[in-house]
Amino acid sequence: MYLKCGSLECARKVFDEIPVKNVVSWTTMVSGLVGFAELDCARKLFDQMPVRNVVSWTAMINGYVSNGRPQEAFELFSQMQVEGVKPNEFTLD
């Protein structure tokens, strides 16, 4: 909700206070950071995720592409494949 309202700071505070985070909460925060063009912060959080799925990978990859950082998108896409995560139609969009 905070991310949709444009309050990254409040969203981060709520995220930090979640005692048990799941892949959805992690991915939501990564996507929010990407949406605010905070790619370096998003990547740092992404790298800390204990579990990633195709949605998390896609959020980060598309963030790089949308912000003119294709080399990093390609490198992350390659890492995704090495880790055995199969891309979907949104990853390749």
Rank of each mutant, 00 (worst) to 15 (best):
M1R: 15
M1K: 14
Y2T: 02
L3M: 15
C5L: 14
G6K: 11
G6N: 10
S7L: 05
S7F: 07
S7Y: 11
L8N: 04
L8G: 01
E9L: 09
E9G: 02
E9D: 13
C10D: 15
R12I: 03
V14R: 02
V14G: 01
D16E: 15
D16P: 00
E17S: 09
I18A: 08
I18P: 06
P19R: 13
V20T: 11
K21M: 08
K21Y: 07
N22K: 08
N22A: 05
V24C: 10
V24W: 12
V24K: 08
S25Q: 09
S25W: 09
S25M: 06
T28M: 15
M29Y: 06
M29Q: 09
M29D: 01
V30C: 10
V30M: 14
S31E: 12
S31K: 09
L33W: 05
V34D: 00
V34L: 08
V34M: 03
V34I: 12
G35R: 13
A37R: 15
A37Y: 10
L39H: 05
L39P: 03
L39V: 00
C41H: 13
C41W: 04
A42W: 06
A42F: 01
R43V: 01
K44E: 13
K44M: 06
L45N: 01
F46K: 02
F46E: 00
F46D: 02
F46P: 00
D47C: 09
Q48N: 14
Q48S: 15
M49P: 00
P50R: 08
V51H: 14
V51T: 10
V51Q: 13
R52H: 07
S56R: 03
S56D: 07
S56L: 09
W57P: 03
T58I: 05
T58S: 14
T58A: 10
A59V: 04
M60G: 00
M60A: 02
I61L: 01
G63P: 04
G63L: 04
G63E: 04
Y64S: 00
Y64M: 03
Y64E: 02
V65K: 11
N67W: 07
G68P: 10
G68V: 05
G68F: 07
G68R: 09
P70S: 03
E72W: 05
E72Y: 04
A73R: 03
F74S: 11
E75N: 13
F77C: 01
S78M: 12
S78W: 07
S78H: 14
Q79T: 04
Q79K: 10
Q81I: 10
V82K: 11
V82H: 14
V82E: 14
E83Y: 04
G84T: 09
G84W: 09
G84E: 02
V85R: 03
V85D: 05
P87T: 02
P87S: 08
N88K: 04
N88A: 06
N88G: 10
T91E: 12
T91C: 11
L92T: 10
D93R: 14
D93N: 14
D93Y: 15
